[in-house]
Write a protein that binds this DNA or RNA. Structure first.
Lengths: 188, 188
DNA sequence: GTCTATACCCCGATAGAC
DNA sequence: GTCTATCGGGGTATAGAC
């Protein structure tokens, strides 16, 4: 066991992420100040800037694992033959990803859409990532309704986590219901 | 015709709302500063505070007409007998409201969810308003999936305006496709 | 390598002069 | 009805203590 009076940099960094995720989710990214984060941890604002280059960097660090998983799904989908089977499989994986990565992160992402749209961590921002997933699930020549259907099916998984928050069901039950409705929208 | 060199207070107020709606929608509420709004109009920040008590007041003034229409729908729905017929009619009115009030306003509302959740203009905030609409459309004893279905059906109308933005269709075509999918979700 | 002190300029908001 | 001046607090940058 390490001494209690000293903290490693790794430890502090993780604690910053922990506190930041809580505050960003509760009050929103913009409404949360660097001073608040620092105060909760008993350190100064400047200490945050040792561990992260700026406020945005904190949020990017929080999302990086999620984004890597999404990128993996996009790459996988790009290599498969198009069709109803792919659509079903993408929804299944997308749904599993949401459940596994933690509903907490996705609630955070949905609640801070506007902020996140500006960020470009790695590949090209999550707006473009959604676009890529949409493309994997839709035929480019499909009629408007079909394209909209595909987009809504993917968004349904996340939307449900927000819209069903008060429904007195566990996150797992909610995710399962969302998965079913999502497949239904794609007529699978 | 009024003289061109003088502006009435009404005029200035309307011009502030115009510029603010543009900026709030493009860059988001939090990312837009009072100075930017003032600069675009060739006045100072302080002048804004003559016309509006604070930044939030501008956004509330922009939403007031929309909210009045939503309140009307809630009140009407509350007086009708529950059932599939009411569900269909609520979706139809909700959809028409979205189209009529202007997609622009709803894009703004969706893009700034987190900000708007804190506001309580008049009745009780738009989070509670959604809740009331949900209640009108769902049986309290319905299973989880049915309740989620109702919520998603209502949200689909708005979500489509965001998700289908790149689909190279007119707002009217998009709204019509969304209406159909929304009814489909409710199995009507 | 880890953090504090301090200073910068922009933010929303207010007071008071014109 | 609009301005200037000012306030506390926000994100950010850096110098330097340990």
């Amino acid at each position: 066991m390490a001494g209690a009076g000293r903290r490693s940099g790794q430890d502090t960094k993780a604690r910053i992420q922990e506190v930041a995720l809580d505050l960003f989710t509760e009050r929103g990214y913009e409404a949360t100040s660097m001073r608040e984060i620092a105060e909760r941890l008993g350190i100064t604002k400047a200490a945050l800037y040792y561990h992260f280059t700026n406020k945005e960097d904190i949020v990017v660090s929080l999302l990086s694992r999620q984004l890597a998983a999404v990128d993996e799904l996009i790459d996988w989908a790009g290599k498969q033959p198009r069709g109803p089977e792919l659509r079903r499989e993408v929804i299944e994986r997308w749904s599993a990803l949401t459940a596994r990565q933690g509903v907490r992160m996705f609630r955070f992402a949905m609640a801070n859409q506007h902020t996140l749209r500006e960020l470009k961590p790695g590949r090209e921002g999550m707006f473009q990532r959604f676009q890529l997933l949409f493309d994997a699930v839709t035929d480019p020549d499909a009629p408007l309704e079909e394209k909209l259907r595909a987009r809504l099916a993917l968004l349904t998984v996340q939307m449900s986590m927000i819209a069903g928050r008060d429904l007195d069901a566990t996150d797992e039950e909610l995710a399962e219901a969302a998965r079913k409705l999502s497949l239904e929208l794609l007529r699978l």
